[in-house]
Amino acid sequence: MWIKHKRIWSWIAVITLIASGFAGTSRASAAKNLPALGTHAQAAALIDVTSGRLLYSSHGDDELRIASLTKIMTAIVAIEHGKLDSEVKVSKNAFGKEGSSIYLKLGEEMTLENMLYGLMLRSGNDAATAIAEHVGGSVEGFVYLMNEKARMLGLSHSHFMNPHGLDEEGHYSSANDLAKLTAYALHNPVFKEIVKTPTKKVPNPNESWDYKWDNKNKMLRLYEGADGVKTGYTKKAFRCLVSSATRNGQQLVAVTLNDGDDWNDHGRMLDYGFEYYPLKQLTEKGEPVQGQDLVVSQTFQYPFADGEEAQVNKKLVLYPEAEEGAPDLRFGLRGKIEVSLKGEKIGEIPVYRKGSVLPERTASGTAAEQTMAPVHQSNWGQWFSVVLKRLLQPGA
């Protein structure tokens, strides 16, 4: 029985770290005295990647066609579920897929990693289909993984029917959901590297020359600090764009759906975020908690409009002490600091006993110094109950 309790407390410690890394709220800014921001888009959103704070949203929850912005989900699901060095074989279904293409040959084999470059730089629908069949076993199997990922991330205004984004009934997302999804994906180093690449050369098994793919995302050339992400267009979705840029250590993501002036709108949106919502540091990893024999485990950063930082409140919440003589199954974890802005919770920072080994990484593989985009918070209770149920089952 003691062994089972030990396992439970170990999992509680791990899940606590996961939840703390994803804590916060993702609400559009309500700060006063800021200039108005407008776009030509049917729907738009702007998000800070580090914190996951939505800085701007216009019709952000409207469920709309998203064209090849779909491939953001395709890429992150493939990266998380597939092996990058595995060989993807092009099936009859993938060969000659309509729409944008990287012109793969029937039966051609290419590593998953290289095919992901073709997917994201050239928006290859043939690559999307081949990747889906390879990683999911079938297109239908992969689409199931896409929708499961959307559910886990709390993307309540998204549903996927295919991996490429060609118009299909029941296939949609929203500007807010795409902002949250992209903020999540940009914490993955493979995804982050792919979407910022301007040009990629890949071996071509059928010809004497290599494939050379230039990124369709003009923001990489038009905007200082641009480092992603994806273009999209269909006759029903019209022009869609997700862009990202990094300045002074802050990364922002802008999303527009059905926008005829998207390049200019994205420049204005990103400028707005960097100017009026600079990223500021509230705590530093390892710093002591005043009046306690404790230290904070993460550097916590958050974007604040002018005057907002003075409205931040930090509350220390300590967990119950273990029984005297019992081993420390929480590895020094003693509680958390709840951070709120204007009475609304924006994050949690785990605190540890001085001298403890502080966690280096969160469950997503991102550095603990980064406060993860908080799209997972709603699933904390669900994850906790599932783990406890499994551990308490006989034979678990």
Rank of each mutant, 00 (worst) to 15 (best):
E63K: 15
D85Y: 00
S26W: 00
R353C: 09
F304R: 14
I8T: 00
A19L: 14
S26M: 10
G332Q: 12
S378T: 02
N264R: 15
Q292Y: 15
Y103I: 00
V375T: 14
G365M: 03
S243V: 11
P288N: 11
K314Q: 11
Y211D: 09
M146Q: 10
D259V: 06
W380G: 00
G335A: 00
T74N: 08
G38C: 09
T371L: 15
E344V: 08
G307M: 13
K218L: 05
T246R: 07
F191Y: 15
K71A: 09
L104N: 11
A150Y: 01
L316H: 05
G99F: 07
W2D: 15
P374Y: 02
P359D: 04
L316E: 11
S57T: 04
N125F: 04
K216G: 02
L17R: 12
A36G: 10
E275A: 13
E87S: 08
R334N: 11
E321K: 15
K71I: 02
T362M: 10
S340L: 07
G365H: 02
W213L: 13
H187R: 09
Q311R: 15
G136W: 09
G232M: 13
P327R: 10
E148S: 04
G21A: 15
K218D: 08
R27H: 14
G225P: 06
E109C: 09
W263L: 10
M219V: 06
N379C: 05
G291Y: 03
A44S: 13
K342C: 02
Y172Q: 06
S101E: 03
M146K: 02
T371F: 04
F191S: 04
I337H: 01
S244G: 13
P198F: 03
W2L: 14
D227F: 07
T182Y: 01
A183F: 08
G118M: 01
L186E: 03
G325M: 04
G267A: 14
K201R: 13
L55K: 13
N176G: 01
L84C: 11
N217Y: 09
K236D: 14
L391D: 10
S173D: 08
G21T: 10
S243H: 09
Q301T: 07
